[in-house]
Simulated scan of single mutants.
Amino acid sequence: MPEMTNGQPVRGPYMHSANGRKIYPFDPQASEVNIDVVAHHLACNGRWNGATQHKQFRSRIYFSVAEHSVLVARYLREEMNRPDLELEGLLHDAPEYLLSDMIRPIKHDPRVHPVYKPLEDKAEYAIAGRFNLVFPLPKEIKIADDAVCAAEARQIVPKSELETWESKDLLHDDTLVAPYEIEMMNPFEAKMFFLDAYEEAIARRSKYASLPFVAKL
């Protein structure tokens, strides 16, 4: 039996969410996942640990998980001809609305990965249940994710000539490069970009899978 307080199960530490509700990173529940909250948090989470800079516009220094996720979904639909996996691509990083974006050198380090991975899996399972996603995510998602990462690395990640940059040092496969311009939207634009992509994906979803159920507010 779970530990109880005042007749209610103890779910571990809670986080504040964008809609004012509590969310529990150690006990995520599918019925509590809210797409607007997911979009908001992913739009406010920066990728590459903030090491980003638009090559043309110096004022653009922020790149969100939300914008990245839309490009992954687009790559699956347009380049890989897998529209059936569009929603999985859009939500592949949705666990980060609970766990934030952890850069790969830390996330995959053997000292960190055994602790982080169970939390990520539990969040991914709850999100898959909420949106009727394939679980675990198929290998095509990783291919699309890496292709978008490769585009980001080429376009918005500065690389000093004083350093040596070799493919063997990469933690993503750069064989394929997504043919998309990285805009580096501000957080509000990225949130709207993500929610628009979600609505479009849902409109196509019934051709391939059952639609998500309605979550608690």
Score class of each variant (00 low, 15 high):
D27Y: 11
P28T: 10
P28R: 07
A30W: 04
S31E: 15
V33R: 05
V33F: 05
N34K: 13
N34P: 00
I35Y: 09
I35N: 03
D36A: 11
D36G: 02
V37G: 00
V37Y: 01
V38E: 08
V38M: 12
H40F: 03
H41M: 05
L42Y: 03
A43D: 03
A43F: 05
C44S: 12
N45T: 11
N45E: 15
N45A: 14
N45C: 13
N45Y: 00
G46S: 10
G46T: 08
G46Y: 04
R47S: 11
W48F: 11
W48H: 12
W48A: 12
N49T: 02
N49R: 11
G50N: 04
A51W: 01
H54G: 08
Q56N: 12
F57W: 11
F57K: 10
F57I: 10
R58E: 14
S59I: 09
S59W: 13
S59A: 04
R60I: 02
R60V: 06
Y62V: 05
Y62M: 08
S64P: 03
S64I: 09
S64D: 02
E67L: 05
H68A: 03
H68N: 03
H68V: 01
L71Y: 15
L71V: 01
R74I: 02
R74K: 15
R74D: 13
Y75F: 15
L76W: 09
L76P: 09
L76Y: 06
L76Q: 08
R77T: 14
R77M: 04
R77D: 14
R77Q: 13
E79T: 05
E79L: 04
E79G: 01
M80K: 10
N81E: 12
N81S: 14
R82G: 07
R82A: 13
D84K: 08
D84M: 10
L85M: 12
L85D: 04
E86G: 02
E86W: 02
L87G: 08
L87W: 07
G89K: 06
H92W: 05
H92R: 05
D93T: 07
D93H: 14
A94Y: 09
A94G: 09
A94E: 03
P95T: 05
L98T: 04
L98P: 02
L99S: 03
L99F: 09
S100I: 01
S100Q: 13
D101H: 13
D101G: 01
M102G: 00
R104C: 01
P105M: 03
P105I: 06
I106K: 10
H108P: 00
H108M: 10
H108E: 12
H108G: 01
H108L: 14
H108N: 15
D109H: 15
D109G: 01
R111A: 12
V112H: 10
